[in-house]
Design a protein around this nucleic acid. Structure first.
Lengths: 183, 183
DNA sequence: TTATCCATGTAAGAAGTTACATGATTGA
DNA sequence: TCAATCATGTAACTTCTTACATGGATAA
């Protein structure tokens, strides 16, 4: 699944310009997908060449013309076909979890700070998603709720289990000090 | 954070060949990171050129020589510096959640099947991770437990809330039928 | 006056995937 | 007999990010 399909999806909710598509992606998907202008604009041009979207240009004073895209029948069909494919595995890349894996190589305070920030970040995501759950289609609420459930679970887990990595770091630190003294 | 850092991390747990690094990545990280041979082998060669790993070749009968890599002092320093950087946001790409967002474009049965598969997948991941939690360092158990907590939360959420997308799909289906009849 | 919003686009480069090449051994 | 495991590597390709180019309007 690529940015092109994502654009088709957003357009199925209503016509939009490239700029607006990015905003809507942030609103709906921000916690599990993202896309930059550098990928959206080329994607839209390609979709237009392939006849999956059409485009109407609105002239604007002192600003580049606004190009409002809408799905064609072909575009809607392609989107549905794409969505019908059984979804592949999620791909996650988490620098945080990699760092946690090697927590014993880090100073004790650094691990604690990473976890603090992580929890704070999750809390604000939970608030944002809870807000989103009061808007949109049932499907969008479902997805927002899914995100919220995961962030809440992650927060709880971190609070209950952070000692596992924080004490580990502490021990490594102590070992390091001992070695230093031993010299 | 790229494959190179991941390789350094794995090597900090013990010497290994490219092939073994991939296996260990699968054991430790599989639910939040992955890497193919096509990225690991070039990464190791580059790390060696930069003096961050060293390599000893074991000759093997009827098989390419096994190249066992180990961290240099420089490599260990680089790894620690890399891990000390505050981790960036997680990046998630979930075809499943994209599909759920547009569940009302899909046939009712298809959505149900996607969710069934998702739950089944999560359950087997939970088993795998629970197993992992009985091995390895405290840090590795922490990370495995984190994954397990999330998969369990996701499973519970899906079971409790799937009606939100399944009934939506059903309604759309009914609407479609009505329109068909109306013709 | 500084940042953010609006608005589109290109070009260079990073990073990774997939497929290919080669091939014996072992377990189902 | 078929798939998986072991073992390394290259090349083509896809995909996306980042930085640049342009620049008025508006809110803090």
């Amino acid at each position: 699944m690529d940015v092109r399909t994502l654009c088709l999806g957003v357009l199925s909710l209503g016509d939009a310009s490239g700029y607006e598509i990015k905003k809507r992606l942030e609103n709906i998907f921000s916690h599990f997908y993202d896309a930059s202008f550098g990928s959206i604009y080329p994607a839209l041009n390609r979709l237009q060449n392939e006849g999956l979207v059409r485009c109407e240009t609105e002239q604007q004073a002192k600003r580049p013309d606004k190009k409002v895209y809408s799905l064609t029948v072909d575009g809607r069909l392609t989107l549905v076909q794409e969505l019908n494919n059984l979804p592949g595995r999620d791909r996650v890349r988490s620098e945080f979890l990699v760092a946690m894996c090697f927590a014993d190589l880090l100073p004790a305070g650094q691990v604690a700070e990473m976890i603090d920030r992580r929890i704070a970040g999750h809390r604000s995501q939970v608030l944002e998603l809870a807000e989103r759950e009061s808007h949109g289609t049932a499907a969008q609420r479902f997805v927002a709720g899914y995100g919220r459930a995961l962030f809440e679970a992650a927060t709880a887990y971190l609070e209950d289990n952070r000692y596992l990595v924080e004490s580990e770091a502490l021990l490594a630190q102590v070992d390091g000090d001992r070695a230093g003294v031993g010299d």
